[in-house]
């Protein structure tokens, strides 16, 4: 078997990389795939919290890299799913504890057993970012409908292209349909126009995400009980598996002119 390595990254911090990683990993596991979520945010780990696995950590990625444990020992199984694992980041070390070539070795080993290796990246464009994309087959860029987040996404896409890890795909997170229709927020079309990459997901602003993160239960696990973000994540999982899932309807259209003028005011 040869699993696919998917890196979730953004440039700007706080746009939802960890949320997307946890939910995509969950959604893919719910489809019966063998999935490992790997936290490459050394020193600032929190994927374990969002997945509700914090209290089960014994070994972490740095332990694997430095030979203190076998890879299997650092893989925490999420008991709510058939085959979902987490490899946590070390909290007490910094990014230099892991090198890009370490990441290639770890991912190559994981590929043998898993269908998907989903990597959560740190913010920024330094060593941690290079680690996160070193072994990747496919990069997902997360951005928010916000000029500064889109600017940073553009920068990251350029770096990914330069590293020949492209073409990256785009997830727009925290979209507030009401604000978009009032022209107070960049629309999906505006963002695609700037970034010129393939869109794979649009996730609405949804308070269930925060509630789920605090409880360690990613929203993707919620059945059909109304959480719209839950469906959005499951749709992305479907698209990653090659299904042609239509995008959810996101409210009223407004004219191009209105949007532009609100943008530049």
């Amino acid at each position: 078997m040869s699993g696919k390595v998917i890196t979730v990254t953004s440039g700007k911090g706080g746009v939802g990389k960890t949320t997307v990683t946890a939910n995509l990993a969950t959604a893919l596991a719910m489809r019966g795939r063998k999935v490992v979520a790997l936290d490459a945010d050394i020193g600032l780990r929190n994927l374990d919290i969002v997945l509700g696995l914090e209290n089960r950590i014994v070994y972490d990625l740095v332990d694997v890299v430095e030979g203190r444990c076998r890879l299997r020992q650092a893989m925490i199984k999420d008991k709510r799913h058939q085959e979902l694992y987490l490899i946590p980041a070390a909290q007490t070390r910094d990014k230099s504890a892991v090198s890009p070539s370490d990441m290639v070795l770890v991912c190559n080993e994981l590929r043998q057993e898993m269908d998907y290796i989903i990597i959560d990246s740190p913010a920024g464009i330094e060593r941690g970012f290079r680690n996160a994309i070193a072994a990747t087959d496919h990069v997902l860029i997360v951005t928010n409908p916000e000029v500064s987040a889109v600017r940073d996404a553009d920068r990251i896409i350029g770096l990914i292209e330069a590293e020949e890890k492209g073409p990256a795909c785009l997830i727009v997170n925290r979209v507030k349909p009401a604000m978009v229709s009032r022209g107070e927020m960049l629309s999906i079309e505006d963002i695609i126009d700037i970034l010129a990459i393939q869109l794979v997901g649009v996730i609405p602003e949804d308070e269930h995400i925060l509630i789920g993160s605090n409880q360690g239960t990613p929203v993707a696990m919620n059945g059909s009980n109304g959480a719209s973000a839950s469906q959005a994540f499951r749709n992305i999982a479907g698209r990653l598996e090659g299904e042609d899932v239509p995008f959810m309807e996101l409210k009223a259209k407004i004219s191009f002119l209105d949007r532009l003028s609100s943008l530049f005011n």
């Binding site: 464009i125 600017r151 940073d152 553009d154 920068r155 896409i157 350029g158 770096l159 292209e161 010129a196």
Partner: peptide, 8 residues
């Protein structure tokens, strides 16, 4: 013959 993205 390419697009220059932010940071280039």
């Amino acid at each position: 013959r390419e697009t220059l993205r932010s940071g280039r």
